[in-house]
């Protein structure tokens, strides 16, 4: 188990290194001179000396690798610089927004699970019967519908026509339902198909046959013997598509005026607030990589065979 963790962590470090290099390069490629931006050159007279002084202070006159080293050093101490717009440290900006996005994501995932699990089990149980066809139909819709459009339609129906749910804002539970559903739905129906496929696969295993032949109750077979391995492919895809999930969250946050990380990033883009963008990209990148690590490790908890197999190698 320890060797597995060690391997994964090494991988993690490599990936994070590439991520940091990538962000740093992009930062350097960005058009416009940050020195001029900070000195607000559009509105004020800036002398060459002022510029040179700041450049020196920020270390921009040093070779790139030195700059990268310093940047990395600061990064290790969670120092991501200051926002051009608000002047507050980026890390602070990010930290105030995380709970809002986390709340949205949490509820979206809850709704997702509430759709995926019953729908997947149901369509596996009635393979090729109408529940199965219905879920396939839903999956096709889910894979084809732009989620911001779904959100718009939902707002139009529930907020404007029926007037039962608020169209935007945060704070109350009624304000969570629409955004969470918008974000969760498109993923839910696609994952339901994956779960179905996984269940059909594991229900055809010999040990399921043997368990049935021992007279084990059908619900126990489904939930205790079959479900566990059926979840593996879903977990994999979930880990891989967590990025799209966060991407979807950006759109949903804008759509429902949620002041989360996504809104912060989009505002930063329009304001050319590079440190904030950089902070956002690094944060989500790290988060996605860490989640993938957790998904990988969860395999060994779900299916102990894997652990022993790898340790035997």
């Amino acid at each position: 188990m320890l060797t597995i963790i060690k391997n994964r962590v090494t991988q993690l470090v490599v990936v994070l290194f590439i991520l940091s290099l990538f962000t740093f390069t992009l930062m350097k490629m960005a058009p416009g001179d940050p020195v001029l931006t900070i000195l607000n050159a559009d509105e004020m007279v800036v002398t060459e000396e002022d510029q040179a002084e700041l450049r020196n202070k920020l270390g921009f006159d040093q070779p790139l690798y030195v700059q990268y080293g310093k940047w990395m050093f600061n990064l290790m101490q969670l120092d991501l610089g200051k926002s051009y717009m608000s002047g507050k440290p980026v890390i602070e900006e990010l930290l105030t927004r995380i709970p809002i996005t986390a709340e949205l994501t949490f509820f979206a995932m809850t709704i997702m699970l509430c759709i995926t699990v019953p729908l997947g089990v149901w369509s596996a149980k009635y393979v090729n019967k109408w529940p199965d066809q219905f879920s396939r139909f839903l999956a096709l819709i889910g894979a084809s519908i732009p989620n911001f459009w779904l959100g718009l339609i939902l707002i139009y129906l529930f907020a404007f026509k029926l007037g039962v749910l608020p169209s935007s804002g945060i704070g109350s539970y009624s304000q969570i339902i629409l955004p969470a559903f918008t974000l969760g739905f498109t993923f839910a129906v696609v994952y339901a198909r994956l779960l179905r496929a996984g269940l059909l696969q594991s229900l055809s295993e010999d040990y399921i046959y043997a368990a049935r032949a021992r007279g084990v109750k059908e619900w126990r077979i489904l939930w205790l013997h079959a479900f566990r391995t059926a979840v593996l492919p879903v977990l994999t895809i979930f880990g891989l598509s967590l990025g799209s999930f966060l991407g979807g969250a950006v759109v949903v946050e804008i759509l429902f005026s949620w002041p989360g990380l996504g809104s912060l990033a989009v505002d930063a883009i329009f304001n050319r607030d590079y440190p904030v963008i950089q902070g956002y990209v690094l944060l989500t990148g790290v988060f996605v990589v860490l989640t993938n690590l957790l998904v990988d490790l969860s395999y060994y908890v779900i299916d102990p065979r894997m652990k022993r197999k790898e340790e035997a190698l």
Partner: peptide, 21 residues
């Protein structure tokens, strides 16, 4: 009846018991 009056043994002994339980 299954497991109580009729018992079953399979060729594939490795897959007789569910592997992760």
């Amino acid at each position: 009846i299954r497991g109580k009056e009729i018992a079953y043994l399979s060729q594939n002994y490795q897959s007789f018991f569910t592997p992760f339980i």
